[in-house]
Amino acid sequence: MSEQSALRVSRAAAPASGRAAALRRRYRLLRRPLALVSWAILVAVLVIGFFGPLVTDLDPLRQTREAFLPIGSPGHPLGTDDLGRDVLARMIYGARPLLVVSLVATALAAVLGIGIGLVAGYFGGRVDWWLMRLIDLAVAFPSILLIILIVAGMGAGETGLTLGIGLALAPGLARLARALALRESAKDYVSAAQIGGARTPGIILTEILPNVAGPLLAQSIMTLSTAAGFAAGLSYIGLGIQPPTPDWGYMVAAGQEFLFNAPRLVLLPALATLVFVVACNFVGDDLRDVLDPRSNR
């Protein structure tokens, strides 16, 4: 939310000139390999998270007497944790909760935010004013605090976490959608549809939405990166996915106790989270270049 507003500030202030175009080309050359690697990481994590548990016969919950086995132990490629559970299995199974929460939360934020934004931008006037005050109110909280409050209210777990993240991230998308809808409603094709007697929901969904879908989709993917960061962070502080279900964020918290004996127990899930979240961000950046050519970056 605030992150995205800041992005727009910087974008609005960016100078547009021939030199800027040259710079953009050079900058893109540098970013392109990063974007490709990021796409690969994103796809890999998605595949591992959703299909990994189906193909592996490793059990992330089975406890053995062989605790703290090092990396490369026979039968346990990434070793075992304090309860003798297989770390590789826990890494594979632990990706899914993060993916599910961040994907569903992003979808929720997109539907809610874009819906509110389009309605506000299309109708303008009093509807717009009230809807935007609602958004202001949501933004008056730091996102994390809003999520913690919602999770505190609903009880720790995936449902509350998903809802909280979705609500916290909706305002950023709502503001973007409103600005775009405001611009589009002034255009002739919208007037034509109105004069032609089209119904309002039809105009918003079939006339305006397709014309603003690119930037909104790109922004939604950027939101996915933020959502993943929040989901992992809240699981880390114990408000997300509940044990014994393996989850990267929770694994870091559980491993922290053994920081000096077995730092890999925190390093593996922490690095995985870091790489995944950063990859989401680069993919969003890359998608924006393609989907939102007007964005002056």
């Binding site: 962070g233 880390y236 870091v252 922490a270 989270t273 870091l274 989401c280």
Partner: peptide, 10 residues
């Protein structure tokens, strides 16, 4: 886009 807790742990 850095997640704080992962960065902090590193």
């Amino acid at each position: 886009s850095l997640p704080w807790f992962a960065l902090g742990i590193l």
